[in-house]
Every structure is written in C-alpha cells, then in structure tokens.
Nucleic acid binder design. Structure first.
Length: 613
DNA sequence: TTTAGGG
DNA sequence: CCCTAAA
C-alpha cells in the first residue's frame, strides 16, 4: 500500500544515513554524516510528531477545512482543551523553567507562527517568556481569538466535538486523505487524535489505560511493515502495549502512520538539499516544532518548489506544501522538521546512589516521556545494576571524563535481553538491537563542557539537535583551556526506531558509525601553514605523526591525518593559479616552499631519517 | 596506530 | 574533513 511505501521510504532516509554523500558532494564540506544527533532529532521528532499532531491541522487542499476538536472526548473522557492546557502548563513549568529550548515553547504555542527563528539557543528565556506570557495564552484560553485570527487569514475553522473513540478515526483517515483534494470532508475524526496531544505526548493516563490499546497503537507505527532494509523508527514506547498491529487494525494506524511518515520524507530531503550548509550552519539544526497551519508560516525559500516532499530548508522548521497539496491527497501543509527537548539539569552529589541518580534522571525525563519507563545506566558499556552503589563507588566522578556513562530508558515491563547489551551495547546484533531498541531510548553521557561545583556532579541532559552536539564537540576541543572540562553533558540519544531504537550510546571508538559526527571545519591559518611547511621541509612527507608531534603537538584538533590532508591541499593550491585559490590566501613564498619540499621529498624517500633540505 | 589515497 | 585499506 502506498502509505507503507512512503513510510518506509521515509524511514530509510533516517535509518540509513545516506545524507552525507549526497550533501557532501554539494560542497564537500560542512556537511554531516551519520550524525548522532540526527538520530536524536529523529527520536524527538517522533515525539514531536505526537505533540505536533496536537497542533497540526492536517489541512486538506482546501484551507477552509480546518477542524479543531473542542468538546470532551468520550473516549478519553477528557476535555481535550483542558487537558491540553493542563499538560501545556505542566510542561512549561517543568521544562522551561529550566531553560528549555524555546522551540518547545513554540510547539505549544501554535499562535506564534512566524516568530520562530532558527538558531534559537536553549534557554532563551526571554523568547519563551514573551510567547508564554503573550501568545502562549492563546493556545486554548483564547481559542476563539485564535480562530478569529485564522479566519481573518482566510480560513474557516470548524469546531467539532469528539464524540467517539480516539482510535476509530484513524481508519478513516486514509479515506479522508484521499478526499482531501476534493475538500469534501476534512479528516475530522482524525483531528481528535491530533488535537489530543497530551494524550499522546505526556499523558500516561491515557496510555496507561488498559483499555486504551487503541490509543497506544495509534502512537506506534506498525513494525511489521519493515519491508525494507531500514527499520522504521518508532515512537518511544510509553507503554508495554503491543506495538504490533493486527491486520484488521492496520487501518487504524494509518492516521498516525500518516503523520509520522509525513515527517520523514521531509527530513530526508532536507539533508539532501542541504547543499550549502557550512559547519556553523549546523547550529541551526536545533529546531522546534511549529504550527504552520497558517500558510503564512511557510518559509519562503523552502516550499512551493517542485520538490513536493523535498523541500526543507535548513533554517526552517516547517515546510508548507501548498504547491502540491492539491495534487497529493495526503499531503499536509506542515511538517515538523525537528524537535528539541528541553534540557534538564540534574544536580546530584557524588555520594548519591546510583538509584537516586536513576530516579533523578527519571524524574526529569519523565516529564517528557511519560513514566512508563525506567532508567538504566551504562558505564563503560556495562550496565550498572547495583542501585545501592554510590556514584563514586561505581566510578562516576566528575574528574573522570572517560567513564562514558550512559542512560537508557527502558520500558518497565519489557525484559531487555541482558546478554545483548550487557556484553557490549555498542555491538548489538541487528536482531538483538531490534529487540532492545524497540522500547528503549538511550541517553548518553558525553564529555561536555559545563561548569560544576567541586562537590557535585552536574549532569546536563539535553536532547541534541545537530547543533548541540556540534557545540559540545567544539567546546571539547577547547576544554583544556578553560575550567569547564570537568563536566559532562548528558546527551539524550533517543534513537527511537520502530525496529531499532538503539540503546547504543555513542562511543565513537566502539565502532558504531551511526554516532559519528563530522568535525567542525577549521581552516588552517597562515601561521599553521608555515609551521606545517617548516616541519615537512624537515621531516618529509611521509611522517605525519612526527610532523604533528613537532609542529602541532598542542593543537589537539589537528591530527596527523589533518596535516597530511592539508599538505595535500597545499600542494594542490600551490599548483593552481592564484585566482583559483580560495580561503585565506597563503603567501606565495610558502607555497613555493611547499612545492620545493614536495618535489624534494618525492625524490628522496623519507626513510625515517631527518634529511636536511 | 599510521600511512596513503580516494572521496 | 571523512573513510579506510594496508602496513
């Protein structure tokens, strides 16, 4: 079926980090490959998809067919609006107070369209405040006003009650989607779902309900449909309900299905279209959720192009699909590009027990993920099971940056193959990883750069969008020069996939390539070039380690491979005309020396001996 | 781990 | 800069 195809397509885009080559070829630099934070983003996007659904309007080709659900839902027995508002407030209170990413705020503030910029840093309190105080109020308390506003925008919003179950609508969606073109009938019923964000996102009440199988299903993707190599991502499993749908239930999931898959193609294309992202641009990858139900939200540069499912610009978080909405039944006019989970700070004494650490982390994470999960802790790849040990006893101290502490979110009721990740979580077999990952999210403690008091270990939890990791890693480079190196960033790596929600944190060395991040680009300065030239003149072109040691021993970010590469480019640069050269101009004198040295050492095999030039 | 080269 | 075969 078409939907499945599209879904899998999207998943593949995520699963298989194909982005790199394609994007890299565009410019050959500043692109990302197998970024760990992509996975993170994915994961949280999955969450976002639920959250986003709340705001999503699933507009048909006819913008008039925008429907909101207002009345209490008989299924959940809750007034959606009230519930949403409660959740929103709770979320805001719990999260934003701690410097949550502003993007989240926007996610909860549908009326702030157009006000969201990329590059919003975390903890942009003023930004948050503004919207929380101002427009945030509009979300529900002033629903009518919002409706008015929308109406002014030429859209008619119908408010309709949710009279039946939350799930039932799902199976109707496909129909409605197909009808969407005709603007016959908006997928009204679907909206019940969509608009019940709290139910899907933070509300465990609903999810926990034993009789709420349907709802659970609706927040899951059909894992059976992994008919391609890539395992489809999944929502974090908030409940140990069966994520597997029976055939008869299949249609029910179409809706969520749709919403999720909708997102992926965009994401995928985004990367492919990321034709000029410089390193610094990656900081902008931290995006929030946006309500782009209003077409005014559409970013002018990334929509309306022929790339129906393609266009997502780096800086935009939502892509309007006006241009082709009419030609595709199920196209929605918005997509969540990325979703940032607010950072959480955990300040815990070293003498605290592992158990308390777990609980603390759990508390924080629970705010977002719901509390049907518990935290597992990995240290050096091994699970720490003894809750009574103290952190220090376990080897978790602020002074040791290398202990590589990892946190996992695991479903309470789902036994996780102990052998699998006990031995080495980084080398899970595909199958075992699938088992694990289905309901697990991993949080990894990575070296970071946060200040911490001497007596306490401050662990920063943050979901990382691309930019974040970038920041972290770049700070790492300079950590030796500041006093921040003793801290760590706890990076949430919710690699949530349908089939493979990897528990695997990111030991780069462990060989898991999915968690590698391209280093930031650092052009060589003339001084560096000079040092390099001088060293090569002395040592030759085949002893890069020595060159490194000799001239760049203190430049942690310059590896001998870097130096070798630089020499390569220097030779090339020296051979081309000055007009063709780019970047900071290298003095001709240096380039001459490069050629000379290169020529010399080409003749004289630099056999481990210092040869005078 | 390093080197050497292609991408 | 990345990725890797080879050494």
């Amino acid at each position: 079926m078409v939907l499945q195809k599209r879904l899998n397509y999207g998943f593949n885009g995520y699963q298989v980090p194909v982005i790199p080559r394609a994007s890299r070829s565009a410019r050959g630099r500043g692109t990302i490959k197998k970024k760990p934070d992509n996975n993170q983003i994915q994961a949280f996007e999955m969450l976002a998809s639920v959250a986003g659904n709340f705001l999503q309007k699933n507009e048909s080709s006819d913008p008039k067919n925008v429907v909101f659900v207002e009345d209490p839902c008989s299924f959940c027995g809750t007034n959606i609006k009230d519930k949403y508002e409660d959740e929103r407030r709770s979320f805001m209170r719990d999260s934003f107070d701690h410097g949550a990413c502003s993007e989240i705020a926007s996610a909860f503030v549908p009326s702030m369209q157009g006000k969201h910029d990329n590059h919003r840093g975390m903890g942009d309190s003023s930004f948050l405040d503004n919207h929380l105080e101002g427009q945030g109020q509009n979300v529900l308390e002033r629903e009518d006003e919002r409706i008015k506003r929308r109406s002014v925008n030429g859209k008619t919003i119908h408010i309709k009650g949710c009279s039946d179950g939350l799930i039932e609508p799902c199976h109707k969606v496909s129909k409605h989607c197909s009808l969407a073109n005709n603007a016959e009938k908006p997928s009204l019923e679907c909206r019940k779902h969509l608009d019940s964000f709290p139910n899907g996102f933070t509300s465990r009440k609903l999810v926990n309900r034993d009789d709420d199988e349907n709802l659970v299903r609706c927040t899951q993707l059909n894992s059976k449909n992994n008919n391609t190599s890539g395992a489809p991502p999944d929502m974090p499993k908030l409940k140990d309900a069966s994520p597997i749908m029976s055939d008869e239930n299949n249609s029910r999931d179409i809706f969520e299905f749709e919403n999720l898959q909708r997102m992926y193609p965009f994401k995928k294309r985004k990367f492919f279209n990321q034709n000029s992202s410089s390193t610094s641009d990656r900081g902008s990858q931290c995006q929030g959720m946006f309500d782009s139900s209003d077409t005014t939200r559409v970013n002018g540069t990334n929509h309306g192009t022929s790339a129906t499912m393609l266009s997502i610009e780096e800086s935009s978080s939502i892509v309007g699909q006006q241009a082709h909405s009419g030609s595709r039944a199920c196209n929605v006019k918005l997509s969540i590009k990325s979703f940032k989970v607010p950072e959480l700070f955990i300040d815990i004494p070293e003498t605290a027990t592992i158990g308390s650490l777990k609980r603390t982390v759990m508390e924080a994470v629970t705010t977002i993920l719901g509390d049907e999960l518990h935290v597992g802790i990995l240290l050096q790849g091994k699970k720490v099971r003894d809750d009574s040990k103290t952190l220090i006893q376990t080897g978790i101290s602020q002074d040791d940056k290398r202990h590589r502490l990892g946190f996992m979110l695991e479903p309470r009721h789902t036994p996780i193959s102990p052998t699998s990740y006990n031995d080495d979580p980084c080398f899970l077999t595909t199958s075992s990883r699938k088992k694990l990952s289905r309901q697990s999210t991993s949080l990894t403690l990575q070296q970071g750069t946060y200040n911490v008091s001497k007596e306490r270990s401050m662990i920063k939890i943050e979901s990382c969008a691309k930019g974040d990791l970038n920041i972290v890693s770049s700070l790492e480079d300079t950590s030796t020069n500041n006093n921040m190196s003793k801290c760590r960033a706890l990076v949430a790596v919710p690699a949530i996939n349908m089939e493979a929600l990897a528990v695997v944190p990111f030991w780069r060395k462990s060989g898991n390539p999915d968690f590698a991040q391209r280093r930031i680009r650092r052009p060589f300065s003339v001084l560096e070039v000079e040092a390099l030239v001088q060293a090569v003149e002395k040592l030759g072109t085949g002893r890069w380690r020595d060159v490194k040691q000799r001239a760049f021993d203190h430049a942690k970010h310059r590896t001998y491979v870097d130096l070798k590469d630089k020499w390569k480019t220097l030779v090339h640069t020296a051979r081309i005309s000055p007009q063709q050269r780019r970047g900071e101009p290298v003095p001709q004198e240096l380039l001459d020396r490069v050629l000379a040295a290169h020529a010399y050492w080409s003749q004289h095999q630099c056999k481990h001996q210092l040869k005078p030039l």
